[in-house]
Each structure stands twice: as C-alpha cells, then as structure tokens.
Write a protein that binds this DNA or RNA. Structure first.
Length: 271
DNA sequence: AAAAGGACCTGGTGGC
DNA sequence: TGCCACCAGGTCCTTT
C-alpha cells in the first residue's frame, strides 16, 4: 500500500507519459470507490490537456485545462501506464485514454482510493485544506513538531501519522523512523524534547528520501507505474519483524497495536 | 476540543 | 480441499 514514497514514485513514473497530452476518452468500468466517481467525469475530461502532475500528501493532483483531477490510491490502488493491447485484469476500474498509444489505468481491488474532479482552487478543496505540512519541505522542522505537540498527550506514533500535523507518513515509515530516532512509539508527545523532535524530523526526511530513491517499499500491493516492485523493503529494521533480533542491540523486536495499527519496536533501543 | 472507534472493501494467509 | 478468522501500506466520519 502506498505511503508517500510510493505515491511520489507513481507520480514520477506517470508524469512523463501524460503531461501535456490530451485526454481523448475516459472509460469508467467501476465507479464505486471510496466516493463514487462522478458519472459525468468522462464528459468533463474529454478534450482537456493534463498540464502537470503534482502530489499533496498521498493525493495525486492532475492539473488539467479546466480544473484538477484528485486521485488517491487508498490501500491497494495502482496507476500504471498501459498500451491498448494489454489485457484487462479484474479491478481495472478506470482507463484514461490519451491521444497516443499510452493509456493510464487505475486498478484498485479494495476500492479505498478515490478519483474526484474539482474546478475550484485546488488548495481550498475540503480534502486538502486541513492538511499539515509536507515532510520533505522546509516548513517541517523540529520547532514545528514541538509546538504542535504541546498540550497533547497522544502517542508519538499517532502524532506523526496525523495528516493534520504532517502528511504522508504512513504506518511503515512511522515505525521505521521512530526506531531510528530511538523513540518508543507509545511515548506521549508532550514529553519529547525539542532536540529529539529535531532529530526525528531529520530521520523522517532521510527515511522518506531513501525510500523514494529505491522506488518505494513493496509489500503486497505496491508496484510502480511500470508494474515493477520497489526495493526499500529490504531495509526495514523493525516493520514486520516481530520476534526477530534488533540489529543494534540483539534484543527481540516487539509487536503491539496502537490505534488498531500494527506497531513494531525494540524495547531496548526505543525509550 | 481532542481522542477513540467504526466504517469502507477485497484478497491472502494460516489454523483446524 | 474447504471453511473461517484475521490481517493488510489509508483516512474520513461518527461517537465518546
């Protein structure tokens, strides 16, 4: 499932194939995603040019001539570039057909993703307007996290996964970053020092950047726009490693649930 | 106002 | 082999 590095990988993969191209046709085979795809989307998009492909959090934004297409991959969504002769698979819900032989295909078994259209200013869209900072931008600092953490006593893992604080840090990279920063995932955020937050910010940025460079983490569902797997999985230190030994200290990695999400940590290295 | 829990889905896995 | 329970990378919405 896509976290920020996976979405960024998809963005970089599809952008060169669809930017500046004209959408000739849109085929909607299954409109029941998280929110129903508007039936008139095909009519709206026909003849429009895709101007740029950007990302905000885990949302992909396709700026078109007359508005924006907002795409989220949910837990199992994929966007791949296909050619017309590639056969349809189950859960291939939408095809965006361009004026050449490159099509963009949306595939999503669990249908937790979304494909929405807006002609309003994109930054004011209800799904985006409340979002926190981008983790790879300069606004994401230890000072910022520290000030947002005051008067809150939630677990730090929940805090860094809260999209109103910082976007794009999902379950895998939250686990990994807290391990590398030596912070216990249940630690109350208002007990963490400014210095520790500064360290955490650098680590989150390093982890996300490294994952992007490797083409994302492949677990079950993620492949890039060419259907290839990512390689970051091999570098996971704690995620999915309950019962294995911590490479730093040799103690057994533990598994707990925090807000129904699988959480992994080293009880010796993370305090 | 903040925090916790439920909901939305399909598919894969492991146990019996 | 079949059936069942449980798990999965997200996040919005409702309830406490």
């Amino acid at each position: 499932m896509p976290e920020l590095p996976e979405v960024e990988t998809v963005k970089r993969g599809i952008a060169p194939h669809i930017e500046n191209k004209i959408i000739q046709q849109v085929i909607l085979r299954e409109r029941r995603l998280r929110w129903e795809i508007p039936a008139e989307l095909a009519n709206i998009l026909r003849g429009q040019q895709v101007v740029t492909v950007t990302r905000r959090g885990k949302y992909l934004l396709l700026k078109c001539t007359e508005g924006h297409l907002i795409i989220h991959l949910g837990m199992s969504g994929r966007l791949i570039i296909v050619t017309p002769e590639i056969e349809l698979k189950k859960h291939d819900h939408v095809d965006f057909i361009f004026d050449d032989q490159c099509w963009l295909r949306y595939h999503d078994p669990r249908r937790f993703g979304c494909i929405l259209w807006t002609s309003e200013p994109i930054a004011e869209h209800p799904l985006l307007v409340e979002m926190g900072v981008e983790p790879l931008e300069s606004e994401f600092t230890g000072d910022y996290l520290f000030s947002r953490a005051q008067h809150k006593k939630i677990a730090v893992k929940k805090f860094i996964m809260d999209n109103q604080i910082v976007v794009g840090v999902g379950n895998i990279y939250a686990n990994e970053s807290l391990f590398l920063a030596g912070i216990h995932p249940l630690r109350a955020v208002n007990s963490i020092s400014l210095e520790k937050f500064q360290q955490l910010v650098l680590i989150i940025q390093r982890v996300l950047t490294a994952a992007i460079a490797q083409g994302g983490t492949t677990l079950k569902d993620f492949t890039n726009s060419e259907g290839k797997a990512g390689y970051f999985q091999q570098q996971l230190k704690v995620y999915g490693r309950a019962g294995e030994l911590c490479e730093q200290c040799g103690k057994v990695i533990e598994h707990i649930r925090i807000s129904q999400r699988a959480s992994y940590f080293c009880p010796h290295c993370q305090l």
